[in-house]
Computed example of a mutant assay.
Amino acid sequence: MRILVTGAAGFIGSKLSERLLARGDQVLGYDNLNDYYDPRLKDARLARLNPLDGFSFVRASLEDRAAMDAAFSDFKPERVVNLAAQAGVRYSLENPHAYVDSNIVGFMNILEACRHNGVGHLVYASSSSVYGNNRKLPFAVEDSVDHPVSMYAATKKANELMAHTYSHLFGLPTTGLRFFTVYGPWGRPDMALFLFTRRILAGEPIDVFNHGHHTRDFTYIDDIVEGVIRTLDRVPGPDPDYDPLAPSPATSSAPYRVYNIGNNRPVELLRYIEVLEDCLGRKAEKNLLPLQPGDVPDTYADVVALQRDTGYSPSTPIETGVARFVAWYREFYRA
């Protein structure tokens, strides 16, 4: 198939593109290579994709409507995976306009381009952050997500609502994936594992929020990509069991689905740090700090729906995943 992947120079997008190309799909990567974090890492990911048969690339932003329309018109994608977004919870407190530009205006452009170019399925990144102040664990797709605690989370919730509107009005099949704390080789430098590794190797203290007691459903990159591909290949239709008198947020009378995609095994942050210390062979000096604004104490993915519909089965324990990350980090940075 011809598949357009936005955010193709990003962490998940680059790995997904690699897997799609390996199975014989044609991939158009779309990314603006912005400097939210070191663009050299994005360039290095892209350098691994450029020589592969079937890969082409457009450098542009989601909010650039003309560039988006041209990419769709020229490439004629059959399916689209939208992974490009302004990421990060804490940064959304400092620069909320960036999230509206990329995650709202940009997603609107994606929806319109899919609608007018006959795309057969749009899969897009949502986030576990949509659960916000919800304290019922594990988080299930049937739960209410009406209390976000960051602008980032609010834009991801908005994406789900916008996608449903297009599924309902225009019959565009859409699937939203609520990612839970993705980690692994080629990961994002603004995330905890990357930050901790760099500081521990430099002999610097690490900032541990909520005194290390919050839990995260850390999910290894290969498990995430497997779930994305399984979802991409399963085009949703109207849910025959949808009840308008007792509506589920996860399905619809339209061709629309929302899934959690996580490891289904939450780990306390202090344990995660212990595993990292073992892999690095040195101890961390910890600055124990309170919970940050916009953060939530715990995440835990109920993935029953994704398992039922696609056979998704995450299998990488953190001991394996963190060790693979550390090996990659040492090689990439010669640390």
Rank of each mutant, 00 (worst) to 15 (best):
P249D: 03
G24H: 03
S17E: 07
F11M: 12
P173Y: 05
V322C: 02
E160L: 01
F170S: 09
N109C: 11
N32C: 15
D222F: 06
Q26D: 11
R188F: 00
Y124G: 03
S73R: 15
G132T: 11
T174I: 00
G7T: 08
D143T: 00
R216M: 11
L232T: 03
H121S: 12
E274N: 14
I3Q: 01
T155K: 05
A305Y: 08
G24E: 01
A44M: 13
P39S: 14
D25C: 04
G281P: 10
M151V: 15
V123C: 03
E274A: 08
D25W: 06
G281T: 05
L122H: 09
P297G: 10
G212A: 07
Y37T: 10
G29K: 05
Y131R: 08
S167A: 15
V322R: 08
L288K: 03
D233Q: 01
R65E: 15
F325W: 10
N50R: 13
S150I: 11
V228T: 09
F57D: 04
M108W: 12
A154M: 05
F218H: 13
R115Q: 12
L195A: 14
G10I: 06
L33G: 10
D35R: 15
S129C: 12
A327N: 14
P238E: 03
V225P: 00
